[in-house]
Write a protein that binds this DNA or RNA. Structure first.
Length: 246
DNA sequence: CGTGGCACCTGCGTTACATCA
DNA sequence: GTTGATGTAACGCAGGTGCCA
C-alpha cells in the first residue's frame, strides 16, 4: 500500500506513519490484506468520530475549509486523532459541502427556470389577447386585409381578454386590470393613441423582464408598427405578430 | 536557465462499514 | 432477520506545486 504512506503528507514524515500504525494494530501484520485491515478497523468501536470531535472539526471548518499543516497537527493533537485522519475529514467535509452547494444551486436555477416558463406562458396569453384586440380594432376601422383575416382568433376574438392586458409582470405577480382597460371603445383617434402608448409601455416592460425576448423586438421598426397615422400599415408587420413566439 | 526526480497536497471516485427504516 | 438507502471514514489514483541536484 505505497500510496498510503505517500498521501500522509508532510506531517506523515514527522509522525503520521508511526502514529497510524498505533491506531491500526492490524498493520502490525504486514501481510494483512486490505479487506482484513478494513475489517479490523470496523471491529474497532472508534470508527466514527465522537460528537465532541465532530463539533470541534465543524467549528474549525466553518472558519477555514482548508487547514494549514501546522494547524492540522495541532487539531489532531487536540482531538487525539492522526493528522491524516484530520486531513481526510476535511477532505470529505469539503466534498459534502460542495455537494450540498450544487444541490442548492440546482434548486435556485430550477426556480428561475420555472419562473421563466410561467412568464413565457403568460406572455403567450397576452399575445393571443392582443391579437384578438387587433383583429377587433381592425374590423372597427374598416380594415380587411388578408393578414388581418388570417390572424383571426380561433376562439372568436374576445375583447374581454383585454382584462389580462398589463397583468403579465411575472416578477411582481401583481393582479388587476391594466390602466388602459375599458377605454377601447372610444373614438378611432383615441384608439390609435392608446395603442401606441400601450405598445411603448409593453416594450418597456418586456425589456425589463430580461434578455430572453426575441431580438427582433428590440428594433423600433418592428415595434412602432402603428405609425403616426394610427393605421395598421404593413401587412408584413401583422404577419410578424402572427409568428411572434408561435 | 532548463530539467528530472522527489515529496507533498488536493480533488475525485470508490470502497467498506454502520445505521436506520 | 433481511434488505435497500444513506452517511461517513478511509483508500487509491491522478494532477499540480515547490524544492533541489
Amino acid at each position: 500500500m505505497p500510496s498510503e504512506y505517500r498521501e500522509g503528507g508532510r506531517e506523515s514524515q514527522v509522525a503520521g506513519d508511526d502514529a497510524k500504525l498505533e491506531t491500526l494494530p492490524c498493520l502490525e501484520a504486514p501481510q494483512a490484506s486490505n479487506k482484513k485491515m478494513k475489517k479490523s478497523i470496523s471491529n474497532n468501536n472508534n470508527r466514527r468520530f465522537s460528537d465532541e470531535q465532530i463539533k470541534l472539526l465543524e467549528s474549525i471548518f466553518e472558519s477555514e475549509s482548508k487547514l494549514e499543516p501546522r494547524k492540522k497537527m495541532q487539531v489532531a493533537r487536540e482531538l487525539g486523532l492522526q493528522p491524516r485522519q484530520v486531513a481526510i475529514w476535511f477532505q470529505n467535509r469539503r466534498a459534502r459541502w460542495k455537494s450540498k452547494q450544487i444541490e442548492k444551486d440546482y434548486k435556485t436555477l430550477r426556480a428561475n427556470y420555472d419562473n421563466l416558463v410561467s412568464c413565457f406562458e403568460s406572455l403567450k396569453n397576452e399575445k393571443q389577447s392582443l391579437l384578438a384586440q387587433l383583429q377587433k380594432l381592425s374590423e372597427m376601422m374598416g380594415l380587411s386585409s388578408e393578414d388581418c383575416r388570417n390572424s383571426r382568433d380561433p376562439e372568436g376574438g374576445n375583447t374581454s381578454t383585454s382584462s389580462n392586458y398589463g397583468n403579465t409582470n411575472c416578477e411582481t405577480g401583481a393582479a388587476g386590470p391594466g390602466p388602459e382597460n375599458g377605454r377601447i371603445g372610444s373614438s378611432q383617434d383615441d384608439v390609435s393613441i392608446q395603442m401606441e402608448h400601450s405598445a411603448q409601455q409593453d416594450h418597456r416592460e418586456l425589456q425589463g423582464r430580461g434578455n430572453y425576448v426575441d431580438d427582433s423586438l428590440e428594433s423600433p421598426e418592428t415595434w412602432y408598427i402603428f405609425g403616426s397615422g394610427g393605421q395598421f400599415e404593413q401587412s408584413s408587420n401583422s404577419s410578424y405578430w402572427l409568428n411572434f413566439w408561435s
